[in-house]
């Protein structure tokens, strides 16, 4: 029995002409204890997928079974409880509440569970010990370095002992040293038996993953099992390929990086040599942004 079971999940944004398809009939099954890295260019639907799995968003179509229960269309209060008890979020920009100290930030999910202040503080303190932040308990978030803030955020995500950790580019804002610390921490959490979903742009980080998903235009275009410690095969290809800009690209005013999308490399059905439809990702990104 898979922990997460997505069946033909779609997500649409906007109305009429401005409708954008952020997820296009994505089906995905995640077993307990997997460490999944999700890769893909901006606007490929990685974050939307994470939001749906994390119950922050509802799919427009399709079914989502979490731990054997259909959860996509549960009432908001139920979803909030699932987020509280089952899911831990780690964001790119840490998202600690600026007016609370580290301890209170970490203990916040317990507040919503109705735990007494003393027990909350003890539990938060224990978790902070685990992430090596015990000596920073009474610091305010602005007094922390990026790596420390992210470790506090991981502590907050862990405090309810969730079954799933969703980390949306947790190292996106960190230098390589802090990135390493944060990733080692996530790896440790994974070794304890947690399921981790990691969104990343950095192919190097697939070394920590047991499975790598590649997304493009709202669909999963590649799904690769990989050994922990090894960089995923396709990720390596993206990593080592040098950006090339042809005369055509310059005429079209398009950066080689956009051409450098992984679908060509990954999708076995795609024929090599055909010029890519360069406009597509740009438009999608725009539509995503203008919604609000």
């Amino acid at each position: 029995m898979a922990l997460i079971e997505l069946d033909e999940v779609s997500k649409l944004y906007g109305f009429g002409d401005a409708t954008t398809l952020a997820l296009d009939e994505v089906s995905l099954s995640v077993e307990k204890g997997e460490f999944i890295a999700v890769m893909g260019p901006s606007g490929s639907g990685k974050t939307t997928l994470m939001n749906i799995i994390g119950l922050l968003d509802r799919p427009s179509h399709g079914s989502y079974v979490l731990g054997g229960k259909q959860v996509a269309h549960q009432p908001a209060a139920q979803q909030a409880k699932l987020r509280r008890d089952q899911i831990g979020f780690v964001f790119q920009f840490y998202n600690l509440l600026p007016r609370l100290n580290v301890l209170d930030n970490v203990a916040l999910p317990l507040t919503y569970k109705g735990m007494t202040p003393v027990r909350r503080a003890k539990r938060a303190s224990d978790i902070l010990e685990l992430v090596g932040m015990r000596d920073r308990e009474y610091y305010m978030p602005y007094q922390l370095s990026g790596g420390q803030a992210q470790r506090a955020a991981i502590a907050r995500a862990l405090i309810n002992r969730p079954s799933i950790i969703i980390a949306d580019e947790p190292t996106g804002n960190l230098d390589s040293q802090d990135s390493r610390v944060v990733m080692e921490l996530l790896a440790e959490v994974h070794r304890q038996g947690n399921t981790i979903l990691l969104v990343t742009h950095n192919p190097e980080l697939t070394r920590y993953a047991s499975r790598v998903l590649y997304m493009y235009d709202g669909t999963i275009v590649g799904d690769e099992k990989t050994a922990i410690g090894q960089m995923a095969r396709h990720a390596r290809r993206i990593f080592f390929r040098k950006p090339r800009t042809t005369d055509n690209d310059i005429a079209a005013g398009v950066s080689a990086l956009i051409r450098d999308v992984p679908d060509k490399a990954l999708n076995p059905r795609a024929k090599r040599g055909r010029p890519p439809k360069v406009k597509k990702p740009a438009r999608r990104r725009k539509a995503y942004r203008t919604k609000n």
Binding site: L56, A80, K81, Y112
Partner: peptide
Amino acid sequence: EIGIRKAIGATNRQ
């Protein structure tokens, strides 16, 4: 802040 609180499990009522 509201978004963060909701993400970590605050219900609408809370």
